[in-house]
């Protein structure tokens, strides 16, 4: 595909497999916007591209890995974090980023998510939350707020959903932030911070899915949704994550910000310290 001269100067361009564009995401889908933020964040934090690996699972957000001109892995459904765990432990020099959706990471792969956070694995997890399994037609995910209409809940969701920042924080993540696709500058900044963080860093980005979630719930277009984020987001850095749940479809306020940023030894550091102590000189430290 021929590209207009000058668009090449777009910082995202060098990160893209441009031969695959236009991508599969729908008009107005928020996923592409977050990829812009990610490209700028990677540039800004200066990680050499050879040291960066990106892992996605299945789903609309799962396609991100396929469009990035990085060492990228498109894995099986829900197993992005499991795959990333192996990648990180086998080659601790790599900065491993998991980039996937809510259904993939906390629905199908919820178990991997909580244990990666608990072990404080040194990986970054970027979760695009659009409240539905969009690619497969809109089944209910564990993040869908009460009353949401999904294909599998035609009369509305009646079960409690996950409060993702709280889930990550209570499992042991050292960096937890939430933004929306409207907050592009803040998303970029959070990604820089997360990439530079040692330990399990987690960013939830709430993003519009105009084709499935917004349409089925009659919430308007992607622009309407972004405007809603703009008007109803309240920035509360350091907020108690217990209070940031999104339990109804159109809450009066969405609390966004950086909720957790603490220091704690990551999995490999803890392993080396412990085994070094127990085994003494016999132990060869790994990944340092």
């Amino acid at each position: 595909m021929s590209v207009v001269e000058g668009i090449k100067e777009n910082p995202v361009e060098e990160f893209l497999r441009t031969d695959r564009l236009p991508h599969v995401w729908c008009s107005g889908c928020g996923i592409g916007t977050t990829v812009n933020c990610f490209a700028r964040a990677v540039k800004e934090c200066g990680i050499p591209l050879n040291d960066l690996a990106i892992v996605s699972g299945i789903g609309c957000t799962g396609r991100v890995a396929g469009y990035l001109r990085l060492d990228s892995f498109h894995t099986t459904h829900g197993r992005a974090i499991a795959f990333a765990t192996g990648l990180h432990l086998a080659n601790p020099e790599l900065k491993v980023v998991v980039y996937s959706g809510d259904g993939d990471l906390v629905g199908i792969g919820g178990n991997h998510f909580i244990h990666a956070a608990r072990r404080n694995l040194d990986i970054t997890v970027i979760l695009i939350n659009n409240f539905t399994y969009a690619m497969t037609g809109g089944q209910v995910t564990p993040t869908a707020p009460l009353d949401s209409i999904e294909t599998t809940t035609p009369y509305g969701v009646f079960e409690q959903n996950f409060n993702l920042p709280h889930l990550a924080a209570s499992c042991g993540a050292v960096y937890v932030a939430r933004w929306t696709a409207y907050h592009v500058m803040q998303v970029k900044k959070a990604m820089v911070e997360a990439l530079n963080k040692k330990g399990f860093s987690f960013i939830e980005i709430i993003a519009p899915c105009p084709t499935i979630y917004l349409r089925r719930n009659r919430l308007g277009s992607a622009i309407d949704e972004l405007k809603y984020y703009k008007e109803h987001s309240v920035i509360q850095h350091g907020a108690d994550t217990r209070d940031v749940g999104i339990d109804i479809r159109r809450p009066e306020k969405i609390i966004v910000g950086k909720f957790v940023d603490i220091e704690k030894p990551d999995y490999l550091t803890a392993m080396n310290e412990h085994l070094g102590e127990v085994l003494g000189d016999k132990y060869v430290r790994w990944g340092e």
Partner: peptide, 19 residues
Amino acid sequence: GVVYVAPERCKGCAICVEF
């Protein structure tokens, strides 16, 4: 300010115009 557009990639969401 300079703006470049690649029309063939566009899906017409108009988010750029709006914001």
